[in-house]
Design a protein around this nucleic acid. Sequence first.
DNA 1: TTAACACATGAACACCCATTCATATGTCTT
DNA 2: AAGACATATGAATGGGTGTTCATGTGTTAA
Lengths: 123, 123
Amino acid sequence: MTKKYASVDRCDCDVIHKDVIDHVRKEMPEEESLYDLAELFKVFGDSTRIRILSALAVSEMCVCDIANLLNMTQSAISHQLRVLKQAALVKNRRDGKVVYYSLDDEHVEQIIDQGMAHINEEE
Amino acid sequence: MTKKYASVDRCDCDVIHKDVIDHVRKEMPEEESLYDLAELFKVFGDSTRIRILSALAVSEMCVCDIANLLNMTQSAISHQLRVLKQAALVKNRRDGKVVYYSLDDEHVEQIIDQGMAHINEEE
DNA sequence: TTAACACATGAACACCCATTCATATGTCTT
DNA sequence: AAGACATATGAATGGGTGTTCATGTGTTAA
């Protein structure tokens, strides 16, 4: 007979409150969602990417503009834009040689604003 | 005469839209805030820490409970709780030998919920 | 005070990842 | 077609970080 949940073999301490553990296990989101969530926040968790997103929240920009604004190489910016695009946080359009990037949806700004609110309301 | 902003010496391409760059530079948040913001999201950007926070959103728990719930060593959990505490995302109280952790404020849940909303509304 | 238990912590290691460097791709101009 | 320019990308590297292991700290009970 298989156990319903993974057996606990890594924890080197005793279960203190089995009822609490069972309750939390039922109520908290699925593992997969939480992994996806961590991946999402990981993308926000880099100062270069956050600065790019904050810039794009103000205005659409091309790669060269962003590189100049942040005083970084075009290559570094391009690599990060790739990460942001894969995470569906930015989109782009090509106009001749120039590629313009912008935020993909309004959720991005909301997440940033929520984080800002947390930071500014510390006392 | 010093320049108002850091000289651009890292970018290996020309400025395309100086007016856009100047505008964005005025409108976007300060560098320091963005660094702090990245640090905050960095804390959320780990699956172990996100799972801990999600669990604590359901109920206060002791270290041993969390370790059992997530099937990880008490040491690993304790290390991550330290990170979460330093980021002011969780608080704790001691009751005898047992230390109970809980979310520090309602902002934490809001940030998680905002991220969840983003993930679930993809199509 | 000694043992047992819950938790914390320092060091070491393995892995991840952001940047750099070199080069490739795509587009426009002549 | 060839050169110039904007951007993309692959490989390499250095720094950061999560887990493990061993051990330390704090509390309770005998």
